[in-house]
């Protein structure tokens, strides 16, 4: 375990907590893409199948997996529940959340069958999950770019999520130098995901800097 990976996992944890806090505290789902959240549930369900094999890697690894699965499902439940509690916002979300996830699902499924560590169900599912995670944020970024504005909490959510996978890259470099091992599929998908976030990072950086620039006397 190295500091990059710990910080990365904590950033991932923080992003989900920010999202849940965002929905519960502001009691609005405005600007949140339910498609991205459903994709994340799929990412965790297909990646953590080894929970059923009871070959637990470590206590930390297991509780984090259980947390990610349960919290991502909880977010989707919260968003679905807003169908009754805030019907207008829910309808608006469906109208603005228009990214064609079929293309993501088909593309990542093909990638999983073509590029995997072993042609077994668990490994293809794992590979599908890694490829899917690298593009799962697209509906959310698409919605954000269309609406042009968003609550700051949503922006912080995306930033923390992007930071998590970006931190995994130095983690992989660290592990390569200390343990001599590297997972090429995870590395490739992680680089793609970081690139997907890069334009968002640029916007976020400008927005934050611009705001602080404005604050200067």
């Amino acid at each position: 375990m190295n500091p990059f990976r710990i910080l990365g996992d904590l950033s991932h944890l923080a992003s989900i907590l920010v999202l849940i806090f965002n929905i519960k505290s502001t009691n609005t789902i405005e600007g949140i893409s339910i498609k991205t959240q459903v994709l994340y549930v799929l990412v965790f369900l297909t990646r953590y199948l080894d929970l059923f094999s009871f070959r637990l890697v470590s206590f930390y690894n297991t509780i984090m997996k259980l947390f990610f699965i349960s919290s991502s499902i909880y977010v989707v439940v919260l968003l679905q529940r807003s169908k009754t509690t805030q019907a207008v916002a829910y309808k608006t979300m469906l109208l603005t959340d228009t990214f064609k996830v079929q293309y993501i699902l088909l593309g990542t499924l093909i990638a999983a069958f073509v590029i995997n560590h072993k042609f077994t169900f668990v490994e293809i599912a794992w590979s599908f999950s890694v490829w899917l995670e690298s593009v799962a944020i697209l509906p959310q970024l698409f919605m954000l770019s269309k609406s042009g504005k968003s609550k700051s909490l949503t922006v912080h959510y995306i930033f923390a999520l992007g930071l998590y996978r970006t931190l995994y890259i130095p983690n992989w470099i660290w592990r390569y130098h200390t343990e001599g091992v590297i997972d090429k599929i995870a590395l490739a998908a992680g680089i793609i995901q970081t690139l997907v976030y890069s334009d968002f990072f640029y916007l976020y950086y400008k927005k934050v800097i611009k705001r602080s620039a404005l604050n200067l006397p």
Binding site: R5, D9, R47, V57, K65, D183
Partner: peptide, 10 residues
Amino acid sequence: VDSTIVHDEL
């Protein structure tokens, strides 16, 4: 020997 790959990262 059990040849399943162990992914130790989240």
